[in-house]
Write a protein that binds this DNA or RNA. Structure first.
Lengths: 212, 212
DNA sequence: AGGTGTGAAGGGTTTCACAGCC
DNA sequence: GGCTGTGAAACCCTTCACACCT
């Protein structure tokens, strides 16, 4: 009951936020349908959260939302930094700025002096040299790492220096970091190649008759 | 031995491509180090591929590469389509165009007439209405779905009509599709919130002394 | 000695199934 | 009756450990 489950809890929360405007209560099978899981899994995921529903009304939406947010976020600031304002970085900045109500990307960093001091999606780009100072100031401990593969390990080390504890890593290589840092890897190329592999299989299994 | 393993196999292949220029043979522990897995897992992943290494030379790089590619891609074309040329879609197009040697994004689609007929990263944008015709012509069966959440289900259905068998889905909702379609979901918001959650935990566990 | 391939064990995650409750 | 919470079972994935090979 860790890793996987936590991810789904954030999905439940997102669905509940939309649901909040429409209804006050929700059953596990309804929320499960909305989020693409089984009712049993949803109930199990909720166990450690400690919020209890009632058998004939289900879960109270606002109450469950509050418990989920307390469980997932805890107290403290939820500022995020983007490191690497390239093609992908800019898109992620725009994406997250519009889509994460409880997290805010408050600073971006790059080594390209042409990008420094520009504003992207309402977020100032700083030189990477200022990482430590700015992140200490803004209490940033979570970073989106979107730099070229060859620089990722080096930049990640600087993030540790700047007291980061969580990294969302888009560089396709295994970062070597101390265990008190949480790293979530997103390997887009791997995902696409995986889809291609299974798609090919599906095609083959679908057309077994072909000039045998 | 499915899902997970296939993803890692694509990672091994990528590492081997870089290795090819430097050495002719590689041991499981070396390749494992490069890709962030244990040697045992790597060897197990390779089992269904059917390529055998030798105890005192390890794996022959080019031979393993050939077997991996045969296993992962099979024959047939490997053309990919992008559906949704928004902020994220454009970035993905650029990203994949530069990074996937064996897959090619050959067509993009959008409903915005201002985007239609433009060229993005060397790829022509077509109106979504032409999806079926163009994808049949170019033998495209894999799609990157990067449209707004509210349109994703509807667009996905059109993709099925156009004979897609694999979808890399960036819309944060569970697509309802027939079982002969493979869907890989990438939920960026979930990933970032997950990082935030664990990062908070790390901070708390690190500083248990605080004005008690 | 130091590799590989793999049966067996281990660990984690999902699903089942049912007691308890309204 | 139909829902929730949860022990138990099933399932999947990873790691261990060792026979075998050079």
């Amino acid at each position: 009951m860790r890793e996987r489950s936590i991810g789904r809890l954030t999905v439940y929360r997102r669905a509940l936020l939309e649901l909040e405007e429409q209804q006050t209560h929700v059953f596990s099978h309804q929320l499960a349908k909305l989020t693409g899981v089984t009712p049993a899994q949803l109930r199990r995921d909720l166990m450690p959260v400690g919020y209890e529903g009632s058998p004939n009304r289900g879960y109270e939406v606002t109450g469950l939302l509050a418990s989920l947010s307390a469980y997932l976020d805890g107290p403290g600031s939820h500022n995020v930094a983007l490191i690497g304002v390239g093609n992908l970085g800019r898109a992620l900045l725009t994406y997250f700025t519009a889509r994460t109500p409880n997290l805010t990307v408050v600073a971006a960093f790059d080594t390209d002096v042409d990008k420094v001091d520009r504003i992207v999606s309402g977020c100032r780009v700083h030189h990477l040299d200022r990482l430590e100072a700015i992140c200490a100031e803004a209490e940033i401990h979570v970073g989106i790492l979107a730099v070229p593969k060859d620089h990722a390990q080096e930049v990640a080390r600087r993030m540790i220096q700047a007291d980061f504890t969580g990294i969302l890593n888009f560089a396709p290589l295994p970062l070597e970091l101390p265990p008190h840092i949480y790293v979530e890897n997103v390997d887009l190329t791997m995902s696409l190649e995986k889809v291609n592999c299974f798609a090919q299989q599906k095609i083959r299994s679908r057309q077994p008759i072909k000039e045998a």
